[in-house]
Design a protein around this nucleic acid. Sequence first.
RNA 1: GCGCCCGUAGCUCAGUCGGAUAGAGCAACGGAUUUCUAAUCCGUCGGUCGUGGGUUCGAGCCCCGCCGGGCGUGCCA
Length: 615
Amino acid sequence: MPPRELSAPREGSQGRGGDPAPVRGGMDVTELKTRFAQALATHTGLELGAVEAAIARPPDLALGVFAFPCFPLAKTLRKAPPAIAAEIVASAQAPEGTELVAAGGYVNLRLQPGILARQAVESVQAWQTTSRVSGSGVGRTVLVDYSSPNAGKELVYHHIRSTAIGAALCRMYEAAGWKVEAVNHLGDWGTQFGKLILMWLREHGMDQEAALADLPSVTLSTLNRMYVGFKPAAAEDPAMEEEARLWFARLEAKEAFARTCWERFIEVSIAALNEVYVRFGAKFDHFLGESFYEDKLEATIERIRQAGILEESEGAQVVRVGDDIPPCLIRKRDGATLYATRDLAAAIWRHEHFGCDRALYVVDAGQSFHFRQVFEVLRRMGEPCAHGCIHVPFGLVLGKGEDGNWSKVSTRSGTGAPLPDVMDRAAARIRETMVSLAEKRALENPSREQDSFSDRELDQVSEAIGVGALVFNELKSRRAADTRFDLDSILSFEGDTGPYIQYAYARLSSILRKGGEVIAPEAARWSLLCEPETERVASVVSQFPERLDAAVEANEPSVIAQFALELAEAVHSFTHHHRVLEVDATPERMLLVETARRTLAKALTLLGLTPVERM
RNA sequence: GCGCCCGUAGCUCAGUCGGAUAGAGCAACGGAUUUCUAAUCCGUCGGUCGUGGGUUCGAGCCCCGCCGGGCGUGCCA
């Protein structure tokens, strides 16, 4: 029985050269917020923490960078909020480089021209030198269990969801200072391997020696062919079902022939998986499949028994986990163990070997129930790993059916198609677009010098944009939402898409290429970076660390995806409104362009997209 | 039946700790190219935030009821 069936799979930055100058004398965003809070606290008699918690961001950057609502004070002070705001502004001292403005019931903190840009530049320099965007996770370890497909089968499109989310989470945690252990809980055990062994034997006339000798020729498509072929073959010869079960029993008994075949099948599967994983930068520190825990199950059950929570119920062994949900099945009536048993053994083993503070299970929302049970059993066992276990659920990948309605995975809509094939198709479509666009440009503007691409570059760029577009589509919405597979809108250069962000990055890169050297921040005339479009870029850039922290705490890659979109929009607006090269403010604008570019590259990389210099 | 998730513009979605006029993209319509990539930008149109109560100075957000949809629910994984 395959673990985690189709509908339920478990599933570099390119900064420019040049050493960033050391940051000094600057004030980053959080520091500024604290100073603002201090100024307010002394004049309101409120606790610093309470003030800091109340501070919000105004809806419009023109109002300021921070806002303090005075409404809650109205009752105690017995004054109208606008009057309170006016009083605070009159008496409190604004931090250096800022001014306080009363607006309605709010006290807003406004920055002097260019301060925002300076903050952005210094913020990026700070995280660039430590190569970590935020330090909130330093000293802690997180284990991320993701992708976790069945061995012996090809990845199909919907596997992209767990893989993209999990891989992004790994990089996000790393960027926040965590030590990350990425684990692939491969479905590498069960009767399906009895079927594969039997099929392989049949293909060699039931001659074990011949079958063994031919093992090196096994590829993923061999496995796939046998997997698909078993059902029709067994329909003709019903005895095969029993034979397959027998072969799995021999595998469990470590019988040499079965074991050797199985090892080769797993080896081929992992190699094939890695070929796909590398295309979205998914990496695993450990492939620890279900088979790995087989010899640890009895000890796990013994531990449950010793905790005094194992009960007999209707012939099975169970643990009661609450009044509102059914008990967690540990051992079936026939003595066999279950999915939950393996997850319990895995949770305990992993915690003992990796010492992780947090363990994420990036598995679809359909298995919420299962994880609730497993985590509750761990808690009742008194296992220390229990409190750090977090199920990170996500919605379905929907495809458009022939009737035009969105529905679950199916081969026809493309969501059940092999994942590498879809990636190839996406890359090919981007390649076509690039070529036809180049032709169009040459026609419309024959005098202008056009970028030309070698075949190799064209391949690399279209791969990065095409695959990146697929990944971005899976990450841009909240995990809980279902995503929709519609290649046309995914690959569009317009709207909330990967290519739109890539284009912003390529534009910035192009400007930097043509602009040459970037000045040191110490030499910058900050007040020249004061237009609304310029400040918008600076504002978004300077929010990166806090947004990353929020994303990590919520285990939500979409927070980073939305951030990347916001930054891309700000960048497009900026480059459209303001010339960077050959103007008075060129040195300063170049500095901002470089800062935005580095930030965009980092955000894209966190999500699993490869930034492209030209497109 | 019970549990979990979801319901925001015609469509797809954001909306942070409850805070200022609920924001984007697509679609539709109208503009912008002597300009570093127009794969872009700017504007117009479009909302009883499913619904009825409650808490609050203030609710898309919190609480309760109802309606609609999805997923799950004892020997699969």
